[in-house]
Design a protein around this nucleic acid. Structure first.
Lengths: 130, 130, 130, 130
DNA sequence: GTGGTCTAGACCACT
DNA sequence: GTGGTCTAGACCACG
């Protein structure tokens, strides 16, 4: 798995790592049960500190996406470990409002907004039959 | 204009102020040419530090939403000062991908995602004919 | 609030800090809304590293016990932020089984076990009317 | 004796093995004088490393539950080798306090706590007259 | 002055 | 060789 990290971005590195892995899970580049590189390996690859990677892994573990073991490294969990609940739907809605507001201000039309949202979804969708 | 600030949120206060103003512009509670309260006034009203409000105004100025004059205070700009360009569309798309990926992972269906996006847009839309 | 930390224990320092704070909340030495010492302050007091305290605070935040702000430090949350759900009851039961088994092996009588459990509860109970 | 090992748990494998054996002794599935499988045998059965089983046995020996002989393998000790002393009661009390504190914080009532403790005890009790 | 992030290096637990 | 813990020091965002 290739990962895109931009050290100049305001987004913390560990957040970027998290996002990359989440995107990987979403579009099936990372399947449940698949092993991720060790913290040391990934840190070397991305040229960042080991602890930064460890923090990303640890938070993904808390979010339910990964299982992390002392000796076996990090492994992608089965989907039932992190399936959406009502609370998630609410927070998702809230976060979208802030983005939508800026888009509206900037004159983005309803159709443009929806098609951008749709493209984003398709871009990361794991594909296959639902 | 009433502003909702939650000091307990992880989002920085100045970001919350920015978002409130942007939402206000989006749904026409704030019209182009309208004068905003002074930094001191708003700070007192929200019970936050003056610098915090100043930072929000300053960034909104950079984003093109406000015009800030030395003695006249802050005024909402005309839409052509901050209309979306290609660069904005790209950054919007990038940010949406991160959200969409988490949603996909958590099993949110395409229809659910789109309707959430649509609701968010309608919630902040300034109304009127497209 | 006085805190008991034993560097020679196998329990990680940050866990000990967490436990001390949880006990403090349980027996009302720490009330909702009360401010905790800053990470630097507590670290100096306990003679441990700042980051170790920060980790404890951060995990207590995740568990819902604390609200942590960039500038205001850590504050004890209101009880409704961390009230027990079914899942908690189950994990609590599981953890108790391991302890009970050892006690049974060691010939601890049912009555002794129950009274020890009861004493532990009373020792940390916040007192007052339910 | 069937043993439940969950590699995905945060609890170290050797701890899980220890707990299983202790629970076995508690509810009389393992009687004093009974021979346990050899390190190699159990390791093969559980599909874990030999050293892991050896560590569990060794610690159980230190705790007084097992006698381990060079060529005879591991045997369950007689109860008088590991009967509770004051020190054990104190450590048990300390461990219970940490659990009780979290329960109290989370609003678990005294009765709920006691009945959970009681159930845990009954679940592992070896049966018979006290 | 507060916590957050990142880096760095050491030692340990686990298998 | 894996992740976990602890220490330490630098810089930044926030107010």
């Amino acid at each position: 798995m290739v990962m895109q990290i931009d050290l100049n971005l305001e987004t913390p590195i560990y957040e970027q790592i998290k996002q990359n892995i989440i995107i990987g899970i979403a579009n099936n580049k990372l399947s449940p049960g698949e092993k991720l590189p060790s913290v040391r390996q990934l840190a070397a690859e991305l040229q960042v500190n080991m602890h930064t990677v460890a923090k990303a892994y640890s938070q993904l573990k808390t979010m339910g996406f990964l299982a992390v073991h002392r000796n076996k490294g990090a492994v992608v969990n089965k989907p039932d470990m992190y399936i959406a609940d009502t609370e998630y739907f609410n927070s998702m809605a809230d976060r979208l409002v802030a983005y939508a507001a800026e888009a509206v201000c900037k004159g983005v039309k309803s159709g443009e907004w929806i098609s951008a949202c749709n493209e984003a979804y398709e871009k990361v969708f794991r594909g296959g039959i639902e």
